[in-house]
Simulated assay, not measured.
Amino acid sequence: MTLTPQRRLLILVVGVLLLAGLGTWSVLSAADRAAEENAPRAGGPAYTSGKVRLDEPGRRVFRSTAAGPRRDRLVSVPATAPENATRTASPVACLRFHAATGTGVCLQSTRTLGRPSYRALVLDAELRTRRAYALAGVPSRARVSPSGHLAAWTVFVKGESYSSSFFSTRTSILDTRTWRLVPSLEEFAITLDGRAYHNADVNFWGVTFAADDDTFYATLSTRDQTYLVRGSLTARTVTTLAENVECPSLSPDETRVAYKKRVLGKTALWREHVLDLRTSKSTALAERRSVDDQAVWLDDRTVAYALPATEDDDRAGGENVWTVPADGTGTPRVLLEDAAAPPR
């Protein structure tokens, strides 16, 4: 069929109209998706897209646990009155996260050749990736030193919970100034009860750092017992300090450690405690529910931790951040709903 100039013009006009319609549909669909992502779930937090920085004064950055497209994203809210504030959401998603002084560590899930895999990202203040490291197992704990110069992470190499009889952990420490990596704390020399100690069943988890960028505290597990250890990166040693201590968190003044203590009872597996490093006195906190988290200190008087939402909560399946006084007084209160514990 011969195309006359009129037919060619008609085909061109129809093509332009189709392309214009397709473009309009794409723009409207994208707008609808953005509106759906930013719209608050019934009873849940509201979101807006924007820039999230780790060093922005007056704001807290944490991992959102709200169901939906923002789950596990890093978000920020004002540090004062954060409860009902609209959350600024970043595109970065983490299974575990911690940050200090503009440095963040994000433990992520990815897929390699169709299989799940995991990696640790070292982030700068603008959430840009500085370095990435493959992880040997499922992310468990993450910490950054107060200076931002050191990062630590723990993964489960076997099993997925502390209750498993077959779990094994691997804890690594990274110097973000030199990128020197300690692949496993099991390389360090152990002093247990004043004597050199070696055992194939040794596991470490839950590192927390002092301000000198050398001293750290962690949990050591061996022969069905857990210990608080103090370690030195330069000396490559750890020394036991106390028994039945898990997931320690050093206070800002470095005089106390918040930790979870395994207890026997019908209502709790772990109770949150604070150990005074000067006197070795341990104080049970007012939170009586089982806390399976590495707490953070909001200041020298207040400890924060995450608890699963209950079946009576319309956010069941997520987590809420609670706070409690560090001296054993007071009562727990909710700081943030649909959230994992924020960095101090």
Rank of each mutant, 00 (worst) to 15 (best):
D314V: 03
A81Y: 06
K158S: 15
R70T: 08
L10T: 11
R333S: 14
D213A: 07
A304N: 08
L12E: 11
F188K: 10
R236I: 11
G159T: 10
A81L: 08
A242E: 14
M1S: 12
A151T: 11
T171D: 03
N203Q: 15
D55F: 07
A339F: 09
S280A: 06
E36D: 12
G194N: 09
G104F: 03
L19Q: 01
F216H: 04
L192F: 09
Y217C: 03
A39Q: 04
I173C: 07
V202R: 05
D253M: 08
A268D: 06
A20D: 01
T4W: 05
W25Q: 04
V257K: 11
V144C: 07
P91V: 05
Y227H: 14
L28R: 14
A218L: 10
T279C: 07
F167R: 15
L22P: 00
S280D: 11
K266V: 14
L264Y: 14
K158I: 02
W25A: 13
R288T: 14
V303N: 08
E246S: 13
T219M: 09
L3Q: 11
D214I: 05
S165F: 10
Q225T: 14
G15N: 09
T103E: 02
R87D: 05
T24G: 10
A34L: 12
G318D: 11
D293L: 03
T169N: 11
R236F: 08
A235N: 12
V296Q: 12
R53E: 15
A30V: 10
S282C: 02
A316C: 07
R115D: 14
Q6A: 15
L10V: 13
M1H: 10
P325I: 06
D32M: 08
W270H: 14
D312V: 06
P82K: 09
R170W: 01
D338R: 06
N84Q: 15
P139A: 09
E83W: 07
R96G: 08
W322N: 05
D313S: 14
G23F: 06
L298E: 02
P146D: 04
T302P: 02
P57Q: 01
L192D: 07
D338L: 08
E160P: 01
V321H: 09
L220M: 15
L228P: 08
D212S: 05
V105S: 00
